[in-house]
Write a protein that binds this DNA or RNA. Structure first.
Lengths: 340, 340
DNA sequence: CTGAAAGCGCTTACAG
DNA sequence: CTGAAAGCGCTTACAG
């Protein structure tokens, strides 16, 4: 069973390559090729398992039927879930996906965007480092279809699907307040990303809405590269303050995991001494001791909407109206935040 | 800044496309193109940010510089980690990666393999459903570079990197026995995969080595599609047996998570009443109550070796000798297995 | 209804 | 040292 090409079919069946190509691309009727010829071609193709070379087709059509997904890290369960949903949806619409992890490096990201363009992807889904203003503007300039997810550029006019970070943190903080917590700490990475900034503001606004004064000492912002070393100090600060915290909001799942580990080492009882809540979660947060109250990211919505919007752009269908979406988070209340 | 092509460079610089292509592919010296011409070409290309169209290059060279990764599910943290490592390593060697999730469906897998071939990937890394004997044989027949990871076909002669499942489970079971456990249950999915079979045998052999009789009642094999419903019954069976188990080995991370959830509902104390251990782990298994003793998969080794072997094959380098690897698991002892 | 031909953007033997 | 030309495997206007 040797590899078979378009010309082989044409030769065997004594028809032109044009006819074969047309029929196999479902344009037989359109070009009024006789039903009989069509059937012969299709049968022959099936029998010999003919499939067009995508490279050649892509080159010829100027379309690769591939979309690129650029994310910070595919090994992060959040992005892995997104990738899974994007893949499923894209496949449904006839596209493959190539992915690249930027590891939060703007240089990597920029290079990966360029590389994807060279590889002729038809569109790009990017969870950006948010430090590639120029690259994003460039995409806009050349009118290349792309959509930002998870993180966006507040002052660039692009399509995006992001999460309502502000609202998510505000409601979980409110929940803590409702449970009687009065001294709520906030542990985050440095707010270089707008998403992280919004989480901080959500925390601010919840306190403000309840007339709780904001205390700088209760807010800890760690370096993303060294959070594992720094979190211990942050937690000790919070629990040995003159007025120790009675709750902590962690702004990412890995901070929560790291923080809880530290609290256990320090033998602090959660939630009795300190209640905790997490933005986003890891695989077994429901089994953790105690099970962790988490803000849930609507990954299905993010992934599906992103693909819908992107492909609507690529194919210029125009059926998707809303191309800037801010989706709501969920809240999963478990034991770590305590009860009334 | 318009898109620039090879011919534009040639025209602007008054040289042939041949020269430009050669120089840009680092074959300038080889073809004795003057240093000056080379410099002019390179400078011009850099200045105008020229990058070759990969589709065209691929079509022409018969090589896409892309490898395909087919796995059961990218949202499974184990495969997400593998994907991350494969990506990093592949990029280092000049390859991009496209991925596809088979969702354990042999039909999907088979179709995805075909689709990847049409897309002209240069090689394939497959964590197979193990039900595509024909497809795998076909790859072998057409001499297409590929490597199996995680799961392999015991009676097909292919390259692979798998884990020593037998040894992993045997040692963790031995560990339980050393701690004085005598009635050890085993909860698994139905052993359609060789990997799962090996885990079962590891359990068998540990018992045998210690002269503990094997009891059919202690072994529960669930349907992979319905394990969430079936696991409850399995656990109840084990703990209400005439001689209830004092330990359970779970053969996958998701069974462990599910099982522990159930044990908590049933208010069984782990590890006091029943000790548990897990094959592989989820993100927060160290934080779970109790922290779960787990067999650790050497993901870095699997990912890196697979790429090394595959690319050695693709480029016919011949520097990688060992192309069938069985790598050892690690063991992370935590609280869930109890102590002496 | 159908076929010869040009074109997609590269690479690379080949001839000089 | 260099250039014209063929070729990779498709698609698709165009002419008949």
């Amino acid at each position: 069973m040797n590899k078979i090409y378009l010309k082989d079919i044409a030769k065997s069946l004594q028809v032109s390559k044009t006819a074969v190509s047309l029929v196999l691309n479902n344009k037989g009727d359109e070009h009024k090729i006789s039903q009989e010829t069509q059937k012969r071609i299709i049968d022959f193709a099936n029998k010999h398992n003919y499939k067009a070379n995508h490279l050649a087709r892509g080159l010829s059509r100027g379309k690769s039927e591939t979309i690129g997904l650029i994310i910070p890290n595919i090994a992060d369960i959040f992005y892995a879930k997104i990738a899974s949903i994007v893949e499923k949806k894209a496949k449904l619409l006839g596209y493959n996906v190539v992915f690249s992890s930027s590891n939060e490096s703007p240089e990597n990201e920029s290079e990966q965007i360029r590389s994807m363009l060279n590889r002729q992807v038809d569109g790009l889904i990017i969870a950006s480092t948010q430090k590639n203003q120029e690259e994003i503007n460039h995409l806009l300039e050349i009118n290349f279809p792309f959509i930002l997810i998870d993180r966006y550029y507040p002052n660039i006019d692009t399509n995006f699907v992001i999460v309502d970070n502000h609202d998510g943190v505000k409601s979980v903080t409110q929940h803590l307040i409702n449970l009687g917590k009065e001294r709520i700490g906030f542990i985050s990475i440095k707010p270089e990303l707008d998403a992280i900034k919004q989480r901080l503001y959500g925390y601010h606004d919840a306190l403000k809405a309840n007339d709780i004064p904001l205390s700088k000492n209760y807010i800890k912002e760690l370096n993303i590269e060294h959070y594992q070393q720094e979190i211990k100090g942050a937690i000790i600060d919070l629990i040995t303050a003159s007025k120790p915290v009675d709750a902590i909001v962690f702004s990412t799942h890995y901070l929560t995991a790291s923080g809880l580990r530290e609290l256990k080492v320090l033998k602090i009882k959660v939630p009795d001494e300190v209640a905790i809540v997490s933005f986003d979660e890891l695989g077994a947060f429901d089994l953790v001791d105690p099970a962790i109250t988490s803000i849930i990211q609507p990954v299905h919505e993010i992934g599906n909407d992103a693909v819908d919007i992107l492909i609507d752009d690529i194919e210029k269908i125009g059926s998707v109206k809303e191309k800037k979406k801010i989706v709501k988070t969920g809240l999963m209340i478990r034991k770590s935040c305590g009860t009334k």
